[in-house]
Amino acid sequence: MADLRVLVIGATGVFGSRLAELAAREPGLALTLAARGRAKLDTLAARLGGLPVRMLDRAALTAADLAGFDVVVDAAGPFQASAPTVIEAAIAARVHYVDLADGRAFVAAIGAHDAAAKAAGISVTTGASSIPALSHAVIDALTDGWQGIDRIRIGIFPGNRAPRGLAVVQAILSYVGHPVRVWRGARWTDVPGWGMLHRWTVPGVGARWASVCDTPEQDLLVKRYHPRDSAEFFAGMELSILHLGLAVLALPVRWGWIASLRPASRPLLAVAKWLLPLGSDVGAMDIVVDGRDARNEAVEARWTLRADGNRGPYVPTLAALALLRRFQRGFGPPAGARACSGLLTLAESDGDFKRLGIVTDRS
């Protein structure tokens, strides 16, 4: 079978570089790395064995830039308020598309590309990341055979020493202080972004601060699992000064004094990097589901991931890696546009967890 020709956009970013690192080890994948900065591209390409590179700006990309590839992976971000430029170029070029999008509106709008993707005979898959791809694979495994789901709680907690990029900070600041629509108490309601502040105890990791985030997950969890009571997604920073400090900075947005914290992305990223030596290199993901089992009895199931040694940033790339393996073997997703919900199984990432030294536990 011929090598699958893959273009990775945003290859020098926190997640793109890790996806490139893992995909470069896969047999049958011919990678090309793309980003806006040549120096970082050349350094990464050399580290991965001399891979070819392209200078590309995702905001100005055209179908001609994708000619000759089988799959394009957009790992650049931020996807909040992002135009579907790469999707449209991929459809025009008849190249399969995968992204790591976490922008709620971006993912929600994916159906608008379904007819064009089917006409082009290609698949367009958004959200091939920790959410919803991995989280839904976990929930599918936890609730297999259940009669119904009452509550879903998902938390992601990176270690403070984990590398962070500007796109991630911009994504977070885009919703901090703004109303976030969540399903709780058996109804849709608005809560302040980075609100619902509380302590979350992760088994084997300890207590971390948690706040509500605006992600595609809130919509997709309700759409796929129909929880009776709630479907909530939280994230937390390990250092109290960062997590609580952001909660304080959210207040002027909540009060309408300023429109957004996103313009402060660079200075806040600088502060976070200054505090990088503090805290730990332990990241975690925790998923708790309550419902009714096959005998209609109340049951709770939990799945926890612990990533030591700053391996946490690899986790958001594993779903995209699993999809590339599927494409290489000739059975990628069917033509059309969809979120990466229910497309992958948890077993498809188990081997990667073990190779990376990432520990998971199910109870």
Rank of each mutant, 00 (worst) to 15 (best):
L173N: 02
S174W: 15
S174F: 15
Y175Q: 05
Y175D: 11
V176S: 14
V176I: 14
V176N: 10
G177I: 08
G177W: 15
H178V: 05
H178R: 11
P179A: 03
V180A: 04
V180R: 06
R181Q: 09
R181V: 14
R181P: 08
W183Q: 05
W183F: 04
R184C: 13
R184M: 12
R184K: 14
G185T: 00
G185Q: 06
R187K: 06
W188V: 03
T189I: 09
T189P: 13
T189Q: 10
D190K: 12
D190H: 15
V191L: 07
V191A: 03
P192Q: 04
P192F: 13
P192M: 08
G193Y: 15
W194K: 05
G195H: 10
G195N: 09
M196C: 12
M196E: 15
L197R: 12
L197G: 05
H198C: 04
R199F: 11
R199S: 08
R199Q: 13
W200H: 13
T201D: 03
T201G: 01
T201N: 00
V202F: 04
V202T: 07
P203V: 12
G204L: 07
G204K: 02
V205D: 13
G206S: 06
G206I: 03
A207W: 09
A207G: 12
A207C: 06
A207P: 14
R208A: 11
R208D: 08
R208V: 03
R208M: 01
W209R: 05
W209T: 01
A210V: 09
S211F: 12
V212A: 07
C213S: 01
C213I: 08
D214I: 06
T215K: 10
P216L: 06
P216E: 05
P216D: 13
P216N: 09
P216H: 11
E217D: 02
E217Q: 11
Q218P: 11
Q218N: 06
L221P: 10
L221M: 11
V222S: 03
K223E: 02
K223D: 03
K223L: 01
R224A: 02
R224E: 03
R224Q: 07
Y225D: 00
Y225K: 00
Y225R: 00
Y225I: 00
Y225W: 08
H226P: 13
H226V: 05
D229I: 11
D229A: 06
D229Q: 13
D229P: 09
S230K: 01
S230Q: 12
A231E: 09
A231D: 11
E232F: 06
E232L: 08
F234N: 08
A235W: 10
A235C: 09
A235R: 02
A235H: 08
A235V: 13
G236I: 07
M237W: 15
M237E: 14
M237F: 10
E238Q: 06
E238S: 02
L239K: 06
